[in-house]
């Protein structure tokens, strides 16, 4: 049984439908990715999974339990932690305070200080800047902080929404190694949403291709990489403007 199971989910903002009949799964300790061009509906789906948006149809299961429609704070307590698009660091709180807040949902508050220490040794920048306000950090540093903040919750499933957005290639490389380590050192599963196909393909074990709100391809990463559809959508592997929608089938 998978850790996360999304079954036939529809989402909408008001009357505007976004996702249609989306199904996916993430196994315990696995890194999975959802790829797709801008506006494909990836972030909307993530918002549904983390509880910010209630699906119009379908179910979301965690460990076999139905968690559809639960609010984000409940899901965080259950171990589903989102690192949102655009990082959303608390600019007026210090780095330390951001980290401490990440651990809000934990039962074992006594361990939090120790974990902060661990984060600071893993992400050296956090130790250097521990008293700086979140807003003073650069984009890349904020991304590290956001991921660390998410990890402070000791999640079982870490949702990463477009972590490479706005980062330099060097920083993207850093993010890549952090994501790989998340699975190794922190034991969490990762669901990664990315426009940067190169990053996604290099860390994930399985992937889904989303277009116009629907999953158009679902497979192991190698097959995804080699698929015609991928090549058409992502010529060269970089970020490209979205192409016209087409009906496609799994290869």
């Amino acid at each position: 049984m998978s850790l996360l199971e999304v079954a036939n989910v529809d989402t909408a903002y008001g009357a505007v439908a976004v996702n249609r009949d989306v199904s996916l799964s993430v196994a315990e300790g696995e890194i999975a990715t959802i790829l797709g061009p801008n506006g494909a509906g990836k972030s909307t789906l993530m918002r549904a999974i983390c509880g910010l948006l209630k699906p119009k149809r379908g179910r979301i299961m965690l460990d076999g339990h139905d968690v559809t429609g639960l609010p984000p704070d409940r899901l965080a307590k259950l171990g589903v932690v989102m690192v949102p698009e655009g990082r959303r660091i608390f600019a007026d709180l210090t780095v330390r305070e951001n980290l401490r807040l990440g651990a809000y949902s934990r039962e074992d508050q006594g361990e939090v200080e120790a974990d902060i220490g661990r984060m600071e040794s893993y992400f050296s920048i956090l130790a250097d800047k521990r008293s700086a306000k979140g807003g003073e950090l650069s984009g890349g540093q904020q991304q590290m902080l956001a991921i660390a903040r998410g990890l402070m919750a000791r999640p079982r499933l870490l949702l990463l929404d477009e972590p490479s957005l706005g980062l330099s290639p060097l920083m993207v490389r850093e993010v890549q190694s952090v994501i790989i380590d998340v699975r190794k050192n922190f034991g969490a599963a990762v669901l990664l949403v990315e426009q940067n196909a190169g990053l996604a393909l290099s860390v994930a074990a399985r992937g889904y291709l989303m277009q116009s709100g629907k999953i158009v391809l679902a497979s192991a990463i190698a097959d995804l990489r080699d698929s015609t559809l991928m090549r058409e959508l992502y010529l060269g592997g970089g970020k490209r403007p979205p192409i016209k929608s087409r009906d496609v089938e799994t290869l």
């Binding site: 984000p72 307590k77 949102p84 959303r88 608390f90 709180l93 807040l101 990440g102 934990r106």
Partner: peptide, 10 residues
């Protein structure tokens, strides 16, 4: 500062 993100933290 940010109600939405705070709720994501639990």
């Amino acid at each position: 500062a940010d109600q939405e993100t705070a709720s994501l933290m639990g």
